[in-house]
C-alpha cells in the first residue's frame, strides 16, 4: 500500500521534508507501528511531541491505516 505523510512545523525540519509517499508491503498498519517505523527512519522524531491525524482526523495510536490514506504529523507550536 501507499500512504502520504505530511510533516508540520518542527517535524518538517527534523525529516527535511514537508511531505512524502511511503510504499509499505503490508495492506494495513496501525498508527503506532507507522510511528515507530518513521521514528527509526528519522531519529529526531523520537523525542518529538506530536498528534497524528489520519485523513484529517486526529487518531488514537491503535487506528488502522489503509492504502491511499493521508497521515499528518502535527506538533504543537509555541510561538506567539
Amino acid at each position: 500500500m501507499i500512504v502520504t505523510i505530511k510533516y508540520f512545523g518542527l517535524l518538517a525540519e527534523v525529516t527535511n521534508k514537508s511531505e512524502e509517499q511511503l510504499q509499505l508491503d503490508q495492506e494495513t498498519i496501525s498508527v503506532i507501528d507507522l510511528k515507530s517505523k518513521l521514528e527509526s527512519l528519522y531519529e529526531g522524531l523520537q523525542n518529538a511531541t506530536y498528534a497524528v491525524a489520519v485523513n484529517q482526523t486526529i487518531c488514537t495510536t491503535d487506528v488502522a491505516i489503509k492504502n491511499q490514506d493521508v497521515i499528518a504529523f502535527l506538533p504543537p507550536f509555541a510561538g506567539g
Partner: peptide, 30 residues
C-alpha cells in the same frame, strides 16, 4: 500559535467541547 511560516488556530472548552489537552496531552519535554 505559530512556527516560522505556519500557524494553528482552534477554540477549546467551548460549550463542553474538547480541550487543548485532548489535542496535545501534556508530556515532559514539551
Amino acid at each position: 500559535s505559530i512556527h516560522k511560516f505556519e500557524g494553528q488556530v482552534s477554540v477549546f472548552n467551548y460549550k463542553n467541547g474538547p480541550s487543548y489537552r485532548c489535542l496535545f496531552p501534556e508530556k515532559e519535554g514539551v
